[in-house]
């Protein structure tokens, strides 16, 4: 089981994860900082406080599973995996380089601990459902979490999977939507509106929790509430800010898939850690 971390401790870890994200993308010269930064407060408490997992034994059959559906935010996942002990933190800087286990979009064959390969959007929730059905068939009690982007919800397969989870009453499935309202071509509402989102999931027979996705206590409470739901899958719709924590990346669509240069990296790290610097 995991030790209980305080909100303050989790906040410190979030800062380190943000720093990892900008460092990794800067070092690689490419990658997706915007959506990685908006997901930090969803994944840090998940990996550090919620998941029942054993980083030193990534194939432990009883482990909870996390499926990253929006594969382009590999940096945030790699960072929380490294910092929970799946692999050395130093390896993060190999991201996107030839021979690295940290592929530009996650490859489960390359890195133990990754539960799926992703990069083509809209596919993760179906995988999560299949794992949840396997848990039921095998009499196991693990839970399955799946992170999707908001723009990703434009993919039809997501809604096929939403129907499947509700139909089979997969209460061991918890979907997360990083609702930062930006995608490559602009605001989600302008590109192709997904609102009203909460009503959509409700009408698909899901239990819906809507939160501020950067408020750690709200996130932790949502995970607890999801776990207590019976007979229904839960979706946590997390309202977030794309590029959160780096002033010039916040709410800027152009930082979806662009790496900071050296000067931008320095400014980003200053934004993340403030004057006093890292712990």
């Amino acid at each position: 089981m995991q030790k209980t971390l305080s909100i303050e401790e989790l906040k410190d870890i979030c800062r380190d994860v943000r720093a990892d994200i900008v460092r990794m993308t800067a070092e690689a010269g490419s990658g997706h900082p915007g959506g990685s930064l908006s997901s930090v407060e969803l994944l840090v408490p998940l990996y550090f406080s919620v998941l029942n997992h054993r980083p030193s034994q990534p194939d432990w059959p009883e482990r909870d599973r996390f499926i990253l559906s929006k594969g382009h935010v590999g940096p945030v996942l790699y960072s929380v995996m490294a910092r929970t002990g799946y692999f050395p933190v130093e390896e993060l800087l190999t991201f996107r380089k030839m021979g690295s286990r940290l592929q530009g979009h996650p490859s489960m064959k390359a890195l133990p601990g990754l539960e799926s390969s992703s990069g083509s959007l809209g596919q993760g929730l179906s995988i999560a459902n299949g794992l949840a059905l396997a848990a039921r068939l095998n009499g196991r009690s693990f839970r399955v979490y799946c992170l999707m982007g908001d723009g990703e919800l434009q993919e039809g397969q997501v809604w096929e999977a939403a129907m499947t989870a509700a139909h089979y009453k997969l209460d061991n499935v918890c979907a997360l939507v990083d609702y930062n309202n930006l995608q490559i071509d602009g605001k989600v509402e302008d590109v192709k509106n997904i609102a009203p989102l909460s009503a959509k999931w409700q009408s698909f027979n899901w239990h819906v929790i809507e939160i501020d996705g950067h408020d750690l206590s709200q996130v932790l409470k949502a995970y607890r509430e999801a776990k207590s739901q019976k007979g229904k899958p839960t979706v946590i719709i997390a309202h977030t800010i794309k590029g959160k924590g780096v002033s010039f990346m916040e709410n800027a669509a152009e930082w979806h898939g662009k790496a900071p240069n050296k000067a931008e990296l320095e400014r980003a790290l200053q934004d993340i850690y403030g004057e006093e610097g890292p712990r």
Binding site: P61, R65, I67, E115, S116, Q123, G124, L125, S126, I127, A128, N129, G130, L131, A132, L133, A134, A135, L137, N138, V144, Q157, A161, T164
Partner: peptide, 11 residues
Amino acid sequence: GTAAGLALGGK
């Protein structure tokens, strides 16, 4: 995708 998840779960 569901089949992929089932396979990941040992089926």
